[in-house]
Design a protein around this nucleic acid. Structure first.
Length: 496
RNA sequence: GACCCCAUGGUCUAGAGGCCUAGGACAUCACCCUUUCAAGGUGGUAACCCGGGUUCGAAUCCCGGUGGGGUCACCA
């Protein structure tokens, strides 16, 4: 707790209309960190008033994504809390009560204009180069007007001041003032009786005792409207903080055409949630000491809004992957193994025989950027290569001596005892054979790797052989030697 | 278009008037290491949007321009 007697309470309020967007994830993350930094509470609220846009299952998905990133809420639709309900739709009665109050007090009025009329008026104004505002046609209707006795559908509009300015005191941007003259009497309750966002959000934040409204910059322009609602309702204002947006590499708003944009998609790509959270943390915020590699928990004591950038940030897939590689290398083997398991299974690999998954992870994680890379890189441990890299074959299998060399190598490998089956023992064996054949060690190493894995790239040969095991190594060497002597080796040509 | 926000290398950023010949990270290039590819190490290329002020002094303050982003719904 920093200043004042009030507990810091922040919230993230997504609408359940899709997956958790990385921009939203970052907003939630910052909001969470701010609350936790001051020992406060972080609240999850689902803004589900628009039934038309509701996507079933997305509330669950949203929560799973947030949890994976370590953004944990103290109160929310699943766990409840003292200031519920935590679904906007469940607060309808309260919204309507406040709306009725404003109507009684003459701070709001019924508007009978049809969407068609409004649309026509808007177009007319735009044609004249005027801003498309509502001109207050129904504002002039008196309370005793007979129209109220008819059953024409209506909306409720807020009667806003015709002049003056509304100032948003933003923790990141300072004082931002808006001329009331450019605002119009916006709708607070729709024809069907449900509240609009700008109305409901105010009541919800007030009812939930939110002290700091931290959200994306796209909401800054809506804030004066909300402040007007706060004032009409005689609610005290929370603190506002509008954080910059996350943009696509072409500086446009992030959308599907930019590839992966949701936490779910990154997970499917093999990005660890720890890495994504860390990367998101760096998008618009920097630690006082310049440290980049840190967990969400590490960031709590360091986080502050005054170190949040004012400029929109462009996300960079390359740096995300670099970050992911850092985590792949440093997380406990068992953690990585657990994370990569589904990716390995997806490749159709069964691990009943051969090395353990942990051994595989240890062997190849150094050179993987994603869990997909990792799974693909471990494949040869449990599956015989079916095809062999064409360029590699050309390079390492073209010498007619190769068949004999592979056979000799298989024999040498077979003769090694169990206690010689380690890195140094293998090096010794390879050296001896190379000397015997009058060739360099590398002339044994490269064909051997290709025979064992089908590829020319991968882990160090001796490490690889140790893990692959004696039986399998000998078998594969002989298989290739035989296929080669019959000219029956299947080649894999690189795509493209 | 109107209103609002913003402006340091390709990208994320440090910088709160002299500490800046502008620092770090990703990416990129070169070299080293080396059984391949990575990783790692070393070094390099690369930025204060432009123009006016203010000041002894400006990346840092002010104004204008330009550029980018956002908002203008009975969506949230």
């Amino acid at each position: 707790m920093q200043e004042g007697p009030f507990l810091v309470r922040t919230r993230y309020a997504p609408s359940p209309s899709g997956t958790l967007h990385i921009g939203g994830a970052r907003t939630a993350l910052f909001s969470f960190l701010f609350a936790k930094h001051y020992g406060g509470d972080f609240v999850l609220r689902v803004e589900d008033t628009d039934r038309a846009r509701l996507v079933s299952g997305s509330e669950e998905a949203l929560m799973r994504s947030m949890e994976s990133l370590g953004i944990l809420w103290d109160e929310g639709p699943d766990v409840g809390g003292p200031y519920g309900p935590y679904r906007q739709s469940e607060r309808l009665v309260e919204h309507q009560r406040y709306a009725a109050q404003l109507l009684d007090e003459g701070k709001a009025y019924r508007c009978y204009c049809t969407p068609e009329e409004l649309d026509a008026a808007r177009k007319a104004r735009q044609a004249q180069g005027l801003p498309p505002r509502y001109m207050g046609t129904c504002r002039k209707i008196t309370v005793d007007d007979p129209i109220h006795q008819t059953h024409k559908p209506y909306v409720l509009r807020l009667k806003i001041p015709l002049s003056g300015v509304t100032v948003v005191d933003d923790m990141i941007r300072g004082h931002v003032s808006f001329d009331n003259a450019i605002l119009d009497d916006f709708v607070i309750v729709k024809t069907d009786g449900t509240p609009t966002y700008n109305f409901a959000v105010v009541i919800d934040d007030w009812a939930m005792h939110i002290s700091h409204v931290i959200r994306a910059e796209e909401h800054l322009s809506n804030t004066p409207k909300q402040i007007l609602v706060y004032e009409a309702l005689n609610f005290s204002l929370p603190q506002f903080a509008h954080i910059p947006m996350v943009l696509a590499p072409d500086r446009s708003k992030l959308s599907k055409r930019h590839g992966a944009t949701s936490v779910e998609e990154y997970a499917a790509q093999g990005i660890l949630p720890e890495a994504l959270a860390n990367y998101l943390l760096l998008l618009g915020w920097s630690a006082p000491d310049g440290r980049e590699f840190m967990t969400v928990a590490d960031a709590i004591p360091l986080f502050s809004l005054d170190r949040v950038q004012h400029t929109a940030a462009v996300y960079d897939q390359k740096k995300l992957e670099w970050m992911n590689a850092q985590y792949l290398k440093s997380l406990p083997v068992t953690t990585v193994a657990q994370a990569v398991r589904p990716f390995v299974e997806k490749l159709g690999i069964t691990m009943e025989h051969g090395p353990s998954l942990e051994e595989g992870v240890e062997l190849v994680r150094e050179r993987a950027h994603t869990l997909q890379d990792l799974a693909e890189g471990m494949r040869f441990l449990w599956q015989n290569p079916e095809e062999y890299d064409a360029k590699g074959v050309d390079k390492h299998f073209s010498n007619p001596e190769v068949v004999a060399r592979l056979q000799a190598l298989a024999e040498t490998m077979e003769q090694l005892s169990k206690d010689q089956w380690h890195h140094d023992g293998l090096v010794q064996a390879f050296d001896q054979l190379a000397t015997q054949l009058g060739i360099k060690r590398a002339e044994l190493i490269h064909p051997c790797r290709l025979a064992l894995t089908g590829r020319t790239v991968g882990p160090g040969l001796f490490e690889l052989v140790v893990v692959l095991g004696q039986e399998e190594t000998v078998a594969r060497l002989l298989t290739v030697a035989t296929a080669l002597s019959r000219g029956a080796l299947k080649l894999e040509h690189p795509i493209g």
